[in-house]
Amino acid sequence: MSDVEKQIAQWRDSLACSETMRDSDVDELENHLREELETLSTSGLSPNEAFFVARRRLGDTAALEAEFAKAHPHRRLGHHLFWMVVGVLTARLFGTVCMLVSNASIWLGYILGLRGIWLVLAYGVAQTVALAILVLLAWRYYASRVQATTVKRSLSISTGLFIACALAGLPWILRLVMLIPDWTIWYSAMVTIGRARHWVDTVWSTLTPFLLVATAIALSLRCTPTARSQG
């Protein structure tokens, strides 16, 4: 790949992670850049000089993003919502996998002769290890596919994850209370807590979509185009 092609690819990447520009918009701008490069090259400029001039004429990335945001005001909100939903679904998926792994560990522990608190410990350890592995794999996958400049996308994903964790948090605190070993004394309390947990679960899962929308709107209003380096 020639120097200019590399520079074009870098410039394209800096636009591709924009919240307000779609791939078709970036294609259109790239076409413009290439036409300008051809014209400038015939006037005697070197390919690198031509790229520098053409990119400057096309405009600063942040300013372009701001102009596209004015033309398509709903894209930013949609972008945040999409990636927050990705965050919530990821949290859900992780939760399900962790639950399966920890349930399997209980069965395995029981077969191996573990009883009482040791079974609970095996459950906890299996869940923690499974979650750590999943987070590590997901992070490696994410880091290998997106640029470091995709800060806002990461922000939306982590907000989604945070909301999902916060929503899942309260029922889990109640679940932990239920793990108190001397359960015979706490039996009646456990029944009450179990019912409360069910209601908390129901209320939280009903509120989740509304909280997601509200947070996405708040993020869209707060986020302004960032000045990025021009590669």
Binding site: H32, R57, G59, E67, F68, K70, A71
Partner: peptide, 15 residues
């Protein structure tokens, strides 16, 4: 004109 600013104008006219 900053060249890139034309495209949001075109998109707005299209909308």
């Amino acid at each position: 004109w900053t060249d890139g600013m034309l495209y949001p104008v075109l998109h707005r006219l299209e909308k």
